[in-house]
Design a protein around this nucleic acid. Sequence first.
DNA 1: GAGATATCTGTCACTCAGTGCCAATCGGCT
DNA 2: AGCCGATTGGCACTGAGTGACAGATATCTC
Lengths: 201, 201
Amino acid sequence: MPTRAEHRRATLRRLGDAAVDLYESMAPAEPTVDHIASEAGVSRRTAFRYIESKEELLFTHPVLWFEIFDAAIAERADAPIGDRLRHASDAISRVIDADPEPVLRSFRVSRGVPGAAASYAVVNHRWIDRVEAEIARDSEGDRFRDRVLAAAVMGVIDAALEEWAGDEGATPLVDLVDRGLRLLSPLFADAGGQVGDAARG
Amino acid sequence: MPTRAEHRRATLRRLGDAAVDLYESMAPAEPTVDHIASEAGVSRRTAFRYIESKEELLFTHPVLWFEIFDAAIAERADAPIGDRLRHASDAISRVIDADPEPVLRSFRVSRGVPGAAASYAVVNHRWIDRVEAEIARDSEGDRFRDRVLAAAVMGVIDAALEEWAGDEGATPLVDLVDRGLRLLSPLFADAGGQVGDAARG
DNA sequence: GAGATATCTGTCACTCAGTGCCAATCGGCT
DNA sequence: AGCCGATTGGCACTGAGTGACAGATATCTC
């Protein structure tokens, strides 16, 4: 039981929560890092040991999802790429659908923050890299194709999240992601896995 | 002959050039906005009337390409979506291939600048919006699908630019974009236009 | 041309993000 | 207890980004 890592995780979560709270209540003004940090019970200097930029605090969730992704991929390590991606995005979607409010709030808030888009994009880019690596495992070494497919998959995730947040989570995220991945299934047809057509886990 | 607009455009270009020059020569250190501005012959305050953030100066080109895109689209206003997108990306690619060095330089430089990725992503997002709007003109109002397709198309452009910059522009950008769009043609098949299969310009 | 007007510009001053440095503290381990 | 590495807070500093004001410059009107 690594108390140290737990503590770090808890602190980051407190920072993220405080940030969303303050951004929300002060809109359209922005809280200072000083303000957010003291609300989370740490010093400004310490806050910057957890983040690289202020806006990052609005996207602690997508970073957390990496762990879910990796775990889900591992569960299907030998399945074709379509199944793996589908299983992973399902796993993440289910976690979000189980407790959508925090995610919805941070998305809602980030909409009104200039600079948030840039920060989100950085996280998104890390996701594209991760998905590309996964696709590459099944491909014949065509890096260009892998990258295009990864971007398309993340386009699906992005569009699904946007749609989902747009109507306040009314439609289960799982279904939206499903629908999106099905759109892409022609691209994966020759790879042996029909993305979006696998039986629900 | 709008002298005013011309002057603004020239100033922005000088700023962009100065930024790339200084970023390149000072790497891995970063020039200050003060430095860039004075190199371009304006004050710091004036520089910030042309940009919103320092890193933006590394991506003056992609913003400029919007005009080429719009003009190319207009030329094919009544063609199916596949042809329109293909014609537009060809037009842009040709402009780049005709004088690749400045673009290559700014890409090369931006690779080493943390924060540049975020700034590029913002521009990229504007591009996705623009492409989505274009796709929407031909679709049956499925905004979700439009967005996914737009993201996929921009994924192609992005991967093509990366590949192109990766080998210093050895492969004509036109060919890379072509190859990428062809990958996506199954997605557009039912829309009446085979992206990437239209006769060359 | 002269003068009214809108735009562009530089200077000054200010807030605040982000970082290096150092000393103090705390958790984990033997 | 005692050591070691990780975490923390305080301080000081650079530099991005912005508001306000005043002077210059271009465009328009007569």
